[in-house]
Amino acid sequence: MAEQVALSRTQVCGILREELFQGDAFHQSDTHIFIIMGASGDLAKKKIYPTIWWLFRDGLLPENTFIVGYARSRLTVADIRKQSEPFFKATPEEKLKLEDFFARNSYVAGQYDDAASYQRLNSHMNALHLGSQANRLFYLALPPTVYEAVTKNIHESCMSQIGWNRIIVEKPFGRDLQSSDRLSNHISSLFREDQIYRIDHYLGKEMVQNLMVLRFANRIFGPIWNRDNIACVILTFKEPFGTEGRGGYFDEFGIIRDVMQNHLLQMLCLVAMEKPASTNSDDVRDEKVKVLKCISEVQANNVVLGQYVGNPDGEGEATKGYLDDPTVPRGSTTATFAAVVLYVENERWDGVPFILRCGKALNERKAEVRLQFHDVAGDIFHQQCKRNELVIRVQPNEAVYTKMMTKKPGMFFNPEESELDLTYGNRYKNVKLPDAYERLILDVFCGSQMHFVRSDELREAWRIFTPLLHQIELEKPKPIPYIYGSRGPTEADELMKRVGFQYEGTYKWVNP
């Protein structure tokens, strides 16, 4: 592979701008107003304001973009700056750019259920340069409990009458099928589907988006991507930290609602779906819905739930269990780990287990898709061969690698495990991989909904998990304890083995 010439960040961002501006969906010269509902909250200060700053800094926003914060707290732009700027990672050389960014910011205080507050917000936006005809993007960085009041008031008082209007809704989209349907029906009564952007930030990850290209742009994968060759698929999300004093919020939802029903299920769809007619948003989402419709409700015998306990040999936070978090209700049975087996009941995947695993306070930070292939028929190497695996590593250190057998150097035919490896950090030294939120917010500006969740996708996802969630809430089974920093409950490994996964433990990928 030829040595790549190092590029400056300015040059890299210039390439990104060229890609972005050559499309006809990006209205570079139009006025846009980006409204952050819930501007005083954690999500706004840690993710949304920093993301908008990065896009502005790199010249990736339309030229005439204004940012308006809205929340109940009586704040000023200076207050917003004070709480969000520490997350910007701005350099001293960017000081003038930073001043320009905050000059485009404003803030309006108001209630979430008060019509007069929204009329005041609308008047404020109209007073901005060309504000009355601007395109408006409303980001709901809010708890779902206020979605209905907020969307109703936005629709009645704050819509642009000339430009387009788009609304970005953060997960969780309800707690179960019934609450999700209620919320979807409410929002759909106010906005068209092409105006609604239900954001799952995992769909903005580079390697998640790469799944489609790997599958449908490489001839070698087509013939082997089926039940005849693939023994099982494992989708993993692991965090090495616990709730760390923020367990009160987590306890309301648990690990299945927080990660599995959305992030992991979306990745499953991209692995299992048929080739779409095109890369058009609805063509892709149509195929994802077909996959979900082929999955039956989760069966309790295919589920393992766990909850982390303190590690007596650990240090600091590792010595504390979930129930030691003062914000967690006493005696909570909320799971911090889950392993679930699903089956896609169609011709391509009949009988292939899709194993979804996620948890907190585990032994490493990792998100990946792992396809394990069947054993080689007619073994001539005296059971020395391990199964081939194709691994798409989402985070950290984005990579695609194939675990395969090669001859060990020497005189004899002794096979050993090795890999074919594409590590993004080595291959793409001159490429700026956008943060997931950067990519998705740019998608909203461009009107691309491919990486957002459609209402029928959402409904099918909740259909699969709601009976299990209701059973857990009714019966309150005690989750299996696992030690902070471990791989999780051993019962999860036993479940995976029972459905056909072979864990060798003899080879570990190392970032080159």
Rank of each mutant, 00 (worst) to 15 (best):
Q195E: 13
E156H: 14
R198I: 04
F88W: 04
I234W: 04
Q195C: 11
E156A: 14
A127N: 15
S132E: 13
G248N: 06
S132G: 15
V213S: 10
E206K: 01
G245A: 10
I33A: 08
R9H: 08
W225N: 03
L20K: 08
I33F: 10
W54L: 10
D100T: 13
K45T: 12
L137Y: 09
K152F: 13
K95E: 14
T51L: 02
A6P: 15
W225V: 05
H124Y: 11
K238G: 03
D113E: 10
H27R: 15
T76W: 06
Y202S: 01
I52N: 02
D181S: 13
V68D: 00
G174L: 03
I33M: 10
F101M: 00
M207T: 03
I255G: 01
S8G: 07
F138H: 05
P86A: 12
F56I: 06
N229M: 06
F250P: 05
G38F: 02
L130A: 14
G248K: 04
S157R: 12
D42Y: 03
R246W: 02
K205M: 03
T31C: 12
S117Y: 11
Q28L: 09
L140S: 07
Y70W: 07
G254R: 01
N229E: 06
L137I: 11
Y107I: 07
K97M: 13
P240D: 13
Y147V: 02
K95R: 14
I199M: 08
D113N: 14
E156G: 14
L75C: 13
L142A: 04
I234H: 15
H129Q: 13
Y139K: 04
G248S: 05
Q209T: 09
E239D: 06
K47W: 06
Q195I: 05
L7W: 05
S8W: 04
N153T: 09
E239Q: 04
H155D: 12
S117H: 12
Y249C: 02
N153S: 14
G254Y: 01
L96Y: 14
P172I: 00
T145P: 08
D30E: 15
I196R: 02
V169G: 04
L203W: 00
R9P: 06
N229S: 09
F221L: 12
K82T: 11
F237V: 13
E85I: 10
F221V: 08
T145K: 05
I230S: 00
F88Q: 05
I162F: 15
L60A: 06
M207I: 07
T236H: 06
L190C: 14
L177V: 12
K45H: 12
F138W: 15
S73A: 12
K97F: 07
D100Y: 10
D228P: 05
I80E: 00
D251C: 03
G222Y: 09
A6E: 15
Y70T: 11
D176C: 11
P240M: 08
N105Y: 08
F191P: 02
F102N: 04
L140F: 11
H186T: 09
L137V: 11
R81W: 09
Q119F: 12
A115H: 15
K205R: 02
I35M: 08
A109R: 11
S179Y: 01
I15K: 15
E239N: 00
Y147C: 01
Q161F: 12
H32V: 08
T31L: 07
E193R: 00
W164V: 09
L121E: 01
F102L: 07
D58K: 09
H32I: 08
E85C: 08
G41T: 03
F237A: 07
F88H: 02
I48C: 04
L7R: 15
T151C: 13
N210W: 04
V146D: 02
E148L: 11
F191S: 04
R182F: 10
L55A: 12
F66V: 09
L140M: 14
R175Y: 12
N218R: 04
M207V: 06
Y107F: 13
N126V: 10
K152I: 12
L128M: 14
G247L: 05
A78C: 11
D228M: 10
L137N: 05
S123D: 15
T91C: 11
G23H: 14
R17H: 15
G247S: 06
S157P: 01
A127F: 11
A231W: 00
Y147R: 01
R246I: 01
L177R: 10
G222H: 10
Q22D: 15
T243D: 00
F237W: 10
V169M: 05
P240S: 12
G41N: 03
I15C: 07
P86H: 10
P92W: 08
F250G: 01
L98S: 03
A103D: 15
G41S: 00
A134C: 12
S84Q: 10
G23W: 11
Q28E: 07
V146C: 09
R182D: 13
S188K: 12
D58I: 09
S40A: 00
L121S: 00
N165I: 10
E94F: 05
F221N: 08
Y118K: 07
F102C: 06
D58Y: 12
G245V: 01
W164D: 07
A231R: 10
Q83F: 11
D251R: 01
Y107E: 02
R198L: 00
L235N: 01
S106W: 07
I35V: 10
A134E: 14
G222Q: 13
L128A: 07
V208Y: 04
A109N: 15
Y139G: 03
S189I: 07
F191L: 09
D176Q: 04
Y197V: 00
N165G: 13
G69C: 05
S123M: 14
R120T: 15
T151W: 10
L7C: 04
N229I: 05
D42K: 02
R81E: 06
Y202R: 00
P50S: 08
V233E: 01
S40T: 12
R81D: 05
K171M: 02
W164G: 08
H32R: 12
E206F: 09
I15Q: 08
F237T: 07
R81N: 06
A39Q: 00
E244K: 12
A141C: 09
S123P: 00
D251H: 04
S106C: 12
S29W: 11
E99I: 08
S8T: 14
S106I: 12
R166A: 02
Y249L: 00
G242V: 02
E99F: 05
T51G: 05
K152D: 11
A44Q: 03
N64Y: 07
E19H: 15
Q11T: 15
F87D: 06
A217T: 11
N210I: 00
S132Y: 13
H129I: 12
A109K: 13
A25L: 07
E252G: 14
I224A: 08
Y249E: 03
Q28T: 12
M212P: 05
F241R: 00
A116S: 12
K238I: 01
T76P: 05
T145C: 05
S29G: 08
R74E: 15
S184H: 06
G163R: 09
S8I: 11
A217K: 03
F216W: 06
G204V: 00
M37G: 08
F216A: 04
I168G: 07
A141M: 03
Q133W: 10
D114Q: 10
L130I: 15
R175S: 11
L43C: 04
I162L: 13
S132D: 14
D79E: 14
G69P: 04
E99Q: 14
H124K: 11
K152L: 14
G247P: 01
F191R: 00
H155T: 08
K97N: 06
P144N: 03
S106H: 12
L75F: 12
K46V: 01
L96R: 10
A78F: 12
C158R: 02
L7G: 07
A103G: 11
N153C: 12
S106A: 11
M159P: 11
N185S: 12
G110A: 08
P144S: 06
F101Q: 03
W54F: 06
H27Q: 12
S180H: 06
Y202C: 00
R246K: 00
F87Q: 08
A103P: 04
